[in-house]
Structure formats: structure tokens, C-alpha cells
Design a protein around this nucleic acid. Sequence first.
RNA 1: GGCCCGGUGGUCAAGAGGCCUAAGACACCGCCCUUUCACGGCGGUAACACGAGUUCGAAUCUCGUCCGGGUCACCA
Length: 550
Amino acid sequence: MEQNKKMAELLLPAVNKKPQYYEELYPQRKLPDGARVTRIAPSPTGYLHLGTLFAALINRITAASTGGVFYTRIEDTDKKREIEGGIADIIGGLLRFGITADEGFVEENRQAGEYGPYRQSQRAEIYQTYAKELIERGLAYPCFCTAGELDEVRKIQEKNKIRTGYHGEWAKHRNITYEEAKALINSGKPYVIRLKSPGSEQNTVVFEDCIKGKIEMPENDEDFVILKSDGIPTYHFAHAVDDHLMRTTHVLRGDEWISSVPKHLQLFKLLGFRPPKYGHIAPIMKLENGAKRKISKRKDPEAAVHFFAEQGYDSECVTEYLMTVASSDFEDWRRANPDKPYGEFKFNLKKMSVSGALFDRDKLDSVSKTVVSTFDSSAVFKKLTSWAEEFDPDFGKILTANPEYTRRVLSIDRDVSKPRKDIAKWSDAKDYFSYFFETLYKPDLTLPENISRGDAKLFLQKYQAAYDPSDDRTAWFEKIKSIAPKLGFAEETREYRANPDKYKGHAGDLSTVLRTAVTGRRNTPDLCEIMRVLGYDTCIARIGEAINSL
RNA sequence: GGCCCGGUGGUCAAGAGGCCUAAGACACCGCCCUUUCACGGCGGUAACACGAGUUCGAAUCUCGUCCGGGUCACCA
């Protein structure tokens, strides 16, 4: 007993607080029954990853739908792997995609909340306080093994087909005495603090995962590291201490963590903490050479959330898509509630998929088109121009050169009862609207096969003479129809279908000729409206050019 | 390799022993609507990994095989 206290003093002399101090500093939260406290705890070792966004969304909505708290915590305990600007990218990215935190890193550079600091590198003393207590209780000890020694042990274990790791009789320093430790420290040897695991592989731990259901695993018997040689905790230890002190009720994280649950449960028990509920989220996968694999930051552009921003996927579209992946009944709910924000959806972790879903770009685009179709033209103007200014400045200049004109362009077939679903992401817009802007206009004047050049030319000449920009939709089409019989075309599509041999085509074919002449393409939204927006002069000029090229 | 988890159409999935002749969505195809395209409507192609059990009855329960994924650090 005395030995343990001496050992603790030897290893962590600077720590003078007791766990009780922190227990009082961070009291139980006063929340309504059933309220869940969740968090996302990213590590700034890379840019915001799709999986992180996905997990954040699930945590956010779980807290929101129960009247709980969602907070962000930065897990920067590995300073070797940390990258410049990582925190800003991750927090900024979450914000950009509509994930706001109640507490923690509420902005890139601002922490808020009573349970902080929310950055692990600022919490060293807290972890050490709990580690020191563990040492005093004989539940943790210093280990002086070098990486090389550990490696050698592992090789022996592998060779003899023994389970690898620092456990049982392989735990070299498990029973180190105060004197031995002191001598090694005095000789300048670095050391880590390991948990003295009381577990046995023979025992089974059972826990109920909120997503995957009942899971059984062998108890942890590994004397894993809790404090690294620099005095900073490992993930496992920081998780136990932080989620306890921050009063997290539900830890919803990627399922790569599932195999360390026995470690975590053991830590909570030994520290006298009540463990949180765990929910392990299946990763988003990607198909490569016929094989599924976890989407990877290094290989897949779409793994970095930045990709979606660059492509111009609106944040709502991405979250909407992610919700369909997250919950099998979300789409049904959406059909019943087309206008509600996704936050009102009654999210149920049980409805989550147990195994990883493939990232489906087609589905994203489809969901996205539907979402974009609900935006009115002024929203589109705002979103499109701000996207363009950031990611395609030349296009941005074109769009903002004449805002009134651009607004009219964007409102075509938009502020109507059945808006078109043509645009999935803002980067689609440049080509889609290109014929409205002279600098982008690249006409393709190829005619439909059933129209001869002569007929096309004749038609355009007649139309050019008759064109009246003040015609409404009906009058506009009547004009085309009235020219049709003169060229041997049927006025009505139905009439043409009934007697295809009597005609060269129908009025619709002629409108395609006009469409081609005016927009340089065969397929567009309502041509009459387009011509009105383009204006008389442009239309006449383009028709004239088309006539000349025929 | 050990330990976990999982296999329903091309993709996401509903499904909790009889309601399954297996829903829906995306993609694909056809038809209708239609000034083109898109939207919308209608229809179509397409699946319970395999093998044994249990049971009157299995996509659903059990076991095995195969396949896929995750994890075995002083990384998170």
C-alpha cells in the first residue's frame, strides 16, 4: 500500500489534485429524462472526413431529438501526427455542413461550455490526476520497455502462436517495485504508465450496443498504455476520463472502436465511473475492383468533405443524403414531410445499418437534385454565386456582372409548382446555363436527323420574320405551328403520330430547330421563357447566325 | 492468424417462423404526358451466399462452409 503511494509520488510528483476535485468541478448535468449527451471527438490529424461528418450528424441529431447536448471535443493527444490547420478545417467543415455544437468547439477558435477545456492537450493534469489515483491503488504501473523490446516479445509470441500483446506473464514490468522503478528513472530511462489489468481472457464481457445489439467479447487482459512517456494519455484513457467528466451518455463512434470496448469498460469500472451507452457506426464504404472497402482519405477524393464543397454540393443535399444512409425509414418520412428540416425526424439508432453502406454517387445526385429543386431562385442565386466566387471565380464574375439578368436566368422553370430537377451541385450550373452568357456560349448546331438543312433554314427565316417577343407561351407556340404546314410538318404531334407518312415531322421538331439555333443545344427548359430572358436582339442574332451556317 | 461484426436485386434497404408469389428508393428499360429535355404517372428486368439441421412451415432460429468488413501501437 505504502509502496503504491510512493510509486505514484515518484511517477507523477507534480500532480496534487484528487479526482474528487474534478468530480465537483464538473457536476452531473441537469437535463430532462431521456436527454442524451453526445459528442464528436475528432483528431486533427487530417482534414474533415466523410465518416466524421456522418458520425457528427448522427450524434447531433441524437442529442437534438432528445433535448440533450451535443458537443465537440478535439482529441489532439498525438502531436506527431497533427497537421497544420486541422482543427479549423474540421470544425469549420462541420459548421459548413450545418452541424452546430451546443458546447465544445462551437467555432474554429472558440470553446464554450462548462465542461471544458474541450481540447485534450489542455487537459493533461486531469488525466494525470486519475492516473495517479490508479497507481496509488495498485492498478497502474510504469513500464520501461523500449519499442525494440516490445517488438521482440511480439515476434516470439507470433513464432509460438501465442496471442500477442503485453499481458499476463509477458507483462515484464507488471510487478516492478518502487526501488527498481526509482533506479531506472534515475538512470534516465523513459517510461509509460500501463494499466494493471485485472481481467482474464477466459471471462466474457457483454454489452448492448445501441446500433449493433448484443455483443460478447473476451475480457481485456492487456496491460495497455494509459499515459505515454510524455505524460499525455492514450485515446482509451482520455476517452474514459473525458466522457465521464463531460457527462456523456452516449458514445456514438465509428465501429473500428468496437474491439476496444472491453478496454473501455474495464477502465470505467476500475475508475469507478458509470460507463456510457455505446453505439458503433458502420463505416461508409467504397467499391474498388469489385471489393468493398472503407472509404479512405488517401485514395478517395470523396472521403474529404472538402470535395463536396468544391463540387458545390449544397450542405443540405449532403446531410439529406447522409440521413438516407443513416436511417432506413428516413426517405419514407421525407415523402410524408417534404418541407420539414431533417432535425425534426424521429431518429432511432436501431434503424441504422449494422454493416457498411457503399457510397452511392448516383443516389447523392438524385437526392441532391430533389433538394435543389426546392430552393427558390433567390436562394439559388445566393448559394450559386457564393459557391462560384470561392471555387470558380471566373464564373462568379460572369454571374454577378449583371445580377438582375442572372436572377432571371435562374428563375426559369424554378419558381413554379413543379420545378425541374436538373442541378445536383453548383458545378453543374456552368454548363447548364452556358448559353445565357456569351463568354460561355459554345453552340452545337447539329440538327435532328429527320430535319433537312433546307427545311431548317426555311423555317428559321420564316420564324425570324414572325418572331414577336411579346407573345405569351401559347402565342409563341402557335407561331411555330402556323409555319409547320407550309413546310410539310404536322401542327399537332398526335396528328403526326397517326399519319407519320403524310408529314416530314411535327411542330415539336421545328421547335427543336429553333431551340438549337437559339441555345446551341437540343435540350433545354422552356424555350419561350428562355427567349424572353435572352432578349429579342440576341435571339434574332443567333437565329441569323444559324441561318448563315446552314 | 486470434478476436469481433456482417452477407436480401447493380446500389441502399424493408423484413423479428406462416401476412413473402419478398416492400420501397437510386440506377437501368418500356409506355403515357409533353414544344425538346427534365419532372410526373404507369409498367418492367433483377435478390434471400451455400450446405445441413430444428419445425407442419425458415429470408427470419441453430450449426458448418464460403465470402466480405473491422481490429490486434507510447495512432486516434
